[in-house]
């Protein structure tokens, strides 16, 4: 069973794509970083929460046939690298999509879905996945 606290503390990112922004250089981070790798020391105290756009386009994708247990019910399933409208690259599953119609450049939108659960009795993990726009 995974740690409840570990999932809980990532809720802003998992549910709402909340990352951070370095107000010193303007770079956006997802997942959230508390320190800008470009500005380093100059970024201290200048990192603010930033919610990514929930829309973007597919930069690359794959259809997974050898799935982890949590996705066995959905295989084959698609994953994608998505460039959000803010220009930030993130990865996630692409669901409710005709697998043969996925293409690079396709517009997608983030939704909340079940990612996994700790067995039948443990907590359910929710987070973002993408659907065609």
């Amino acid at each position: 069973m995974s740690s409840v606290a570990r999932e809980w503390r990532e809720i802003p990112g998992r549910y709402n794509l909340v990352g951070t922004k370095c107000t010193n250089c303007g770079r956006i981070f997802f997942p959230a970083r508390t320190f800008c790798p470009d500005c380093r020391r100059a970024s201290i105290g200048k990192i603010e929460p930033y919610a990514l756009a929930r829309t973007g386009t597919v930069y690359s994708f794959s259809v997974i046939h050898e799935a982890p247990d949590c996705n066995n019910m959905q295989k084959p399933y698609a994953v994608a690298m998505v460039e959000t409208d803010d220009g930030v690259m993130i990865e996630g599953q692409l669901v409710d999509v005709d697998l043969e119609k996925i293409e690079i450049g396709m517009p997608v939108r983030a939704v909340l879905r079940k990612l996994d659960a700790d067995g039948k009795a443990g907590v359910i993990h929710y987070g973002y996945k993408f659907v065609p726009q």
Binding site: R6, E10, G13, P31, S60, F61, S62, I64, E66, A67, P68, C70, N71, Y77, V79, A80, M81, I90, E91, G92, Q93, L115, D116, G127, Y128, K129
Partner: peptide, 17 residues
């Protein structure tokens, strides 16, 4: 947390490349 935890498997990363 942000790749495997989102359902992105190790081979799928290379597949996307």
């Amino acid at each position: 947390e942000w790749e495997a935890g989102m359902g992105v498997t190790f081979p799928s990363l290379y597949a996307m490349i």
